[in-house]
Design a protein around this nucleic acid. Structure first.
Lengths: 149, 149
DNA sequence: GTAGGAAGTGGAGCGCGGTCTAGATCAAGC
DNA sequence: GCTTGATCTAGACCGCGCTCCACTTCCTAC
């Protein structure tokens, strides 16, 4: 049983059957999926592996349009590897940038949670609103973001 | 000139004036923004600081609904710090999770770009399709994702 | 006083990434 | 044969986060 039904693929990839059909319609798959005599889809191992790559790229924020572009390139066969590389590399850079951004946000959030945790530990009465209260130092440039919240 | 017009706030926060009005309508701001006699918004420093927090939280993927909930809590004043903490902390955890996820994706993408770069360096003739070709080891569990692309 | 630009309001529209519906067909088990 | 459940297609619909439109009002400068 080396080929899978759409339901089985949905189960093991985490995509819904709806999403699987949608991806196919949108040209995100490299080859046309094989069908049974009755018209049902039969996914080969390669199809599922490709889907797993798609899922990773999507998870990391690649828009469907780029994913389609990548699938188009692969579908065209050898000869356009430089373009595939550019596409993936540009995406990797965006992912790096996004990670950096998230880490910055994370540090602000962590600092604010520390302010609250500290406040709660000292008891409800201690004032978050008192600007002179000693609280953990703020990260980044701005140092007075806590006064209101 | 300690208060700013909506245009000035847009310029320094990077939000559009449309978005600023939208955020206000959606209850994402803590206090009602002051108005001039003629009805124009005048943003105080605190308003802008709050917006900067909102922007960070949004950037890091907090949905507007949660942001509104947080604004509601702050608006209600002292006494609900524990809930604010829970909200922020839950978000921080999601951000951490997201960073982890992105890093995993990044390593797959980096590996695939390495495969392509390697291929191009050896010249267009070398086969990406040859499963026996020595290529950098794949990260994670799956080791045969390259054969198709 | 009038021109021009910024800002006001309410509400429609949009781009993305799916999700769901309707109604038909297929396939396995009794 | 019949039921049950998975799958099929085409196309409508949705939630989110804005964005834009139409039209009015305000304000500054000439």
């Amino acid at each position: 049983m080396t080929e899978l039904s759409i339901g089985e693929v949905a189960e093991r990839t985490g995509l819904s059957v709806h999403a699987l059909r949608f991806y196919e319609r949108e040209g995100l798959l490299v080859g046309p999926v094989r069908r049974t005599a009755g018209g049902r889809r039969r996914y080969a191992v390669l199809d599922v592996q490709w889907l797993e790559i798609c899922i990773r790229l999507r998870e990391s924020g690649m828009p469907l349009a780029d994913l389609r572009r990548f699938a188009d390139l692969v579908r065209q066969g050898p000869g356009n590897e430089a373009e595939r590389l550019r596409l993936l590399d540009a995406h990797r850079q965006r992912v790096d940038e996004r990670i950096r951004e998230l880490e910055e946000c994370r540090s602000l959030i962590a600092w604010k949670t520390a302010v609250y945790a500290d406040h709660l530990e000292r008891g409800e009465a201690a004032g978050l609103w008192d600007p002179t209260a000693g609280s953990p130092a703020a990260p980044g440039q701005s140092s007075s973001l806590s006064s209101r919240s």
